[in-house]
């Protein structure tokens, strides 16, 4: 059984699934639009949570929130179901396919056999769409892949019931009601407002302040744990910022693309120039990645290099603070 479903590759899995599912339902919306309206740009540092033996840093909010917020602001409903029993989860998915509903799934990356081995980590917040089933396989549209792919029935159960942080628990989701027309300008403004508020939040681990906290920690890690551990932490930061799914520069380029689209819809030239500014900030994040990678490649142990990286990140934080203040004003 195969449902007609058009696969579009995207940078980030969650926005990609959202955009692809909405397009399938006749609501044409781009990936950056979903990302911006769903307030996808974020920064958080969670000191007590370790991922791959390094402190957790994320350039995006909790899995699922982007799509949920975009849905709320655009006025469509998304049904989400979790399962405790894998058999029930399989039955519900098959039932959906029978009813001609391509279905979004939260899955663990470790069991995704179509990913290169190097990328198979225990990361549970990946998303894809299932659009058909054969005797042996499920037909899968994974938005970070160039083309559609497949997973065996057994592997599908594995990835839906992966364990660890953010365990998907078989979660599946799909839009149930699509509005004929949405108040796009209103949705955009609400999305921007929340992002500006979060990035300027007076919390030391969130947004601009979170970036500063991490920047200041870099030389402290070096003093306390030595270069080996610090380099591992830095590599982890770069991976969070640049790995498949971010579209580069810790989502800053997707956000700039969103602001550009938003500028046209809201007829707001200020957003257009802010888009250019965000692009420059994204470029600086890319430079940071280049410089950090030089440090852990050469295994240089001078304390100086860590101070330099720290300053570089603090500079980005300053620019972002200024940026989000301007953004807030631009839509006020």
């Amino acid at each position: 059984m195969e449902l007609g479903f058009t696969h579009h590759q995207s940078a980030h899995c969650e926005n990609g699934v959202a955009s692809n599912l909405l397009k399938h339902n006749g609501f044409d919306i781009s990936e950056p639009m979903i990302f911006g309206i769903g307030s996808g740009l974020f920064f958080v540092y969670i000191p007590f949570l370790k991922v791959n033996h390094a402190p957790a840093i994320s350039y995006r909010p909790m899995p699922g929130t982007i799509f949920n917020k975009a849905a709320k602001r655009l006025g469509f409903k998304v049904k989400r179901v979790k399962f405790s029993n894998p058999k029930a989860a399989e039955k519900a998915l098959d039932e959906n396919l029978k009813n001609n509903i391509p279905t979004g799934l939260q899955v663990g990356v470790y069991g995704l056999t179509y990913f290169p081995d190097e990328y198979r980590f225990h990361f549970n917040a990946h998303n894809c769409v299932v659009y058909g089933k054969t005797e042996t396989d499920y037909l899968v549209s994974d938005p970070v892949m160039q083309h559609v792919t497949t997973l065996t029935h057994k592997d599908m159960e594995k990835v839906r019931f992966a364990k660890g942080a953010f365990a998907p628990r078989g979660q599946m989701y799909y839009p149930v009601s699509i509005p004929k027309a949405s108040d796009l300008p209103q949705a955009i403004i609400r999305g921007i407002k929340e992002t500006a508020r979060d990035m300027l939040a007076p919390v030391p681990i969130v947004g601009v302040k979170g970036i500063r906290t991490v920047a200041k920690l870099i030389p402290k890690w070096a003093a306390k744990h030595g270069p080996k551990v610090t380099n591992h932490y830095l590599a982890q930061i770069v991976r969070m910022q640049e790995e498949i799914g971010t579209g580069g520069g810790g989502f800053r380029f997707i956000y700039a693309a969103f602001l550009q689209e938003a500028a046209v819809i809201l007829k707001n030239d200020e957003l257009k120039s802010l888009s250019l500014e965000m692009t420059k900030i994204g470029d600086l994040w890319r430079d940071f990645a280049v410089n950090a990678s030089r440090v852990y490649k050469n295994r240089s142990s001078q304390t100086d290099v860590y101070n330099t990286l720290s300053k570089e990140m603090l500079h980005i934080a300053d620019l972002e603070e200024e940026f989000f203040k301007k953004l807030k004003k631009a839509i006020a």
Binding site: H53, A235, V238, A292, K297
Partner: peptide
């Protein structure tokens, strides 16, 4: 830079 970051994690 990404390749190096990933290799670093794999080496670890």
């Amino acid at each position: 830079p990404k390749t190096i970051a990933l290799s670093n994690s794999l080496e670890d």
